[in-house]
Computed example of a mutant assay.
Amino acid sequence: MSEKKYFTKFVRSVDWNATKEAKQAVELIEEWETIDVADALELLPPEFETEEIRAYAVRILERADDEELQYYLLQLVQALRFERSDMSRLELFLIERALSNIEIASFLCWYVAVERHDPTFGRQYNNIYKMLENSMIKFVDREDGDDDEAQLCQSLSLQDKLVVELHSVPKNVRDVCGSGQKKIEKLRELLPGIFTEVTKIKTFFVC
């Protein structure tokens, strides 16, 4: 079918609010030359609300190996804010891949945890984080779960606690009345506890 380099332009040209045109476009997409994984990311911004388009993007992403997926992981986590429903195809895909790769799981949890503090999308990411956490707990509790998976869950729990503490530091320092020296003293008071939490975390990143 048509060259894949024109795929995104074609998708943008479709009036997805016109039922007949949208249906014909979906049929045409299925016959199109398969696009690359990098191109699939262009189908996840907010202007592409159509479920068929976002589902197609996820099908392309499923072809990525773990290394390639990890390269695009941050962008994919940020794209979650544009999903129209809970437990979207993209969300389920990322969780599924996280359950099969410890490195992806660790990075995914960190990225989602940071987004939980976003003033606009924080609640949405909090729900995603809870679903990810529950999925990992169920995965570890299965009969054939191994020690690495259990340690990962423990590590992620500590990481979550660490993120909360890090976000509280600026506020705690700002709330100190008095000179800049007192604020510095407060910061010095808080840092040892944070460093203690860091040393407890078992990392799963390959150097």
Rank of each mutant, 00 (worst) to 15 (best):
V163T: 05
I201V: 12
L80R: 05
C207K: 14
T120N: 12
L156I: 07
K138Q: 14
K130Y: 09
Y56V: 04
F48D: 03
K182L: 15
A98H: 00
Q151M: 13
F48C: 00
P45C: 08
C177Q: 15
A18V: 14
L73F: 04
L187T: 09
Q159M: 14
E185F: 06
Q75Y: 06
E149M: 10
K4H: 06
V206C: 05
E30D: 11
I104C: 05
Y125C: 04
A79I: 01
L28E: 14
Q75E: 13
E143Q: 12
A98K: 02
T203F: 03
V14T: 09
L99A: 08
R174Q: 11
F204G: 03
I95S: 08
I60D: 00
Q159K: 12
R12K: 15
H167N: 14
F7Y: 01
E21L: 10
I29G: 03
V114C: 09
E51V: 06
L92C: 08
P170S: 07
Q159V: 10
F107H: 12
E149Q: 14
M1D: 08
Q75K: 06
A38R: 15
S100M: 13
F121T: 07
S168V: 03
L28N: 08
S106M: 09
L152C: 02
S2A: 15
K23L: 12
W16L: 03
L190Q: 04
K186C: 07
T203D: 02
K5H: 06
I102L: 11
D66G: 11
Y56M: 03
V140H: 04
I184N: 05
Y111I: 01
T120S: 08
E185W: 01
V11G: 01
K130R: 10
V26Q: 05
S85M: 09
V14A: 06
I104R: 00
Y72L: 15
L73R: 01
V163S: 02
K171T: 10
S155V: 00
E103Y: 11
P46G: 08
